[in-house]
Amino acid sequence: MILDELEKRLRPPERPMPPYPPKYIVVASGQPLVIRQARHDDFPALLEAVEPLARVRKDFYDIVASRMYAELLGQYIHRVVDPYCLVGTIDGVIASIVNGRMIDEKRGMSYHTLTIHRGLRCGAHMFAAKMEYHMEYLGQDEVFIVAESFIGFKRWMIEYQLESRPELQHELGGAPSYVLTRALYDMYKPRLVAGTRPVPPEILATADELILPDEYPQIPGYKR
């Protein structure tokens, strides 16, 4: 009981996050990338999927995976206020993960985008889904974003022409902050945000139970 009391004091106020309706995108390989909101019971698998990448120096996977691991763990054990996580799967296998949180009703904080299955622009689609969640389902006007990898900078700052606001303090530290405004989102949405809803039940069923990747293209020779 004492522990429970302490635990209550450690946790931020718990508010249910608005749902993100699942969608799917037919990627270049012809396979559906199913994107859905992660459930609480998904987190052990998500953590296990992210963990091996924390030691991959190439393309800054190490910092992105390390930070995402901590953020997902924080969400899983209730240490972050108003967090969310979206997961993308191909044939049920975790292909990409994005996360972030609400700062308040009108402003969002984007954390990370981590793609395991490379070469199909899954990361780009997942980032777009994350922005879609902030703008269309959380009803926010701005999302604060930083990049910690070259790929991220090219994909987000350049491709969305994000507004530079170096004076803004992002929660990830001192990296220069950028902002996706509603005007920018509306401008780029037709070109960058895709997906079909509802997801046919047989496709959605493939994403119900997350499957860990057997191989990581980032880790030659890796076998789970």
Binding site: V26, V27, A28, G30, Q31, R118, L120, A194, G195, T196
Partner: peptide, 20 residues
């Protein structure tokens, strides 16, 4: 490039204009 591509993904897929 190590990934395959299919006509159903890049030519007549439902999300071609974003995927390709």
């Amino acid at each position: 490039i190590e990934e395959s591509a299919t006509l159903s993904g890049i030519w007549d897929g439902p999300h071609r204009d974003v995927v390709n």
